[in-house]
Amino acid sequence: MASTAKLPNLNQVSRVDQVGVEERAARFCARSIKNESKQEALMMVLSMIDLTTLEGQDTPGKVTQLCHKARHLNAARPELPTVAAVCVYPTMVAVAKKALTGSNIHVASVATAFPSGMSTTKIKLEETRMAVAAGADEIDMVISRGAFLQGDTRFVFDEIAQVKEACGKAHLKVILETGELGTLDQVRRASVLAMHAGADFIKTSTGKVQPAATLPVTLVMLQAIRDYYHETGRMVGMKPAGGISKAKLAIHYLVMLRETLGNAWLTPVWFRFGASSLANDVLMQIEKQRTGVYQSLDYFSLD
């Protein structure tokens, strides 16, 4: 253990009331984002996307096409921002890195026996180093949910800290897989644990487990980030992933982000959407805003 991080007392983590969280989350959805605010929000959403492909059937061809899409969201609209990153399996990092050369788009790689995390720490560290060596700018690790639910928070903490160390300069996103944690109280505890262990980002889900990202879960994590920031002065990023496929929902997330953490977090540096089909819906909305006409997916590239 080279890390100097200290496992916090998770019993002191603030409790969460599920119904209260759900009510608050619903209230964000009641915000009506129109006109120039919507335009601005849609641009932000695009710039915050981690365009993702995490399939057993992924091939270099598929990843290359995805990277092209990442660089050229809409060939006809070069003024649009690019996505923040492309997110792939470790074996595809080199392919993605190559395809994205010359762009500012990061390559993110899942690691640590994604999505289950059911392997030894040794192998997880090895996988992390491999992905970083292949050029990954960001590592999306999964926590050992079994150990966490079993109460072995020390194990989970140490594992995160070691992966963080293995990341070197790469940014570490820690996936809590909230759909397997059972309660929002556990989500909050896991968030605190991950941040103290060194996470640069905390992330809701792998996308392989239902439910994936939800507004209530994300709210709890944002509140944990806020309290951690107050306590330590260190900003931590947030990445909801899985299930966010519509622009409207993504804007609700931005409203929640703005009203929970404030403007400092409203940037791809501190907020990401893990999504595959969100980009096209946002592009359709941008076109709708521009032309006043509702759009069809037939006019947007499917990569």
């Binding site: 984002i33 953490l261 409203l266």
Partner: peptide
């Protein structure tokens, strides 16, 4: 100094 900033940036039309 760790005050959150809700005053500037993206506003609701």
């Amino acid at each position: 100094s760790r005050k959150l900033d809700f005053s500037t940036g993206w506003d609701y039309a």
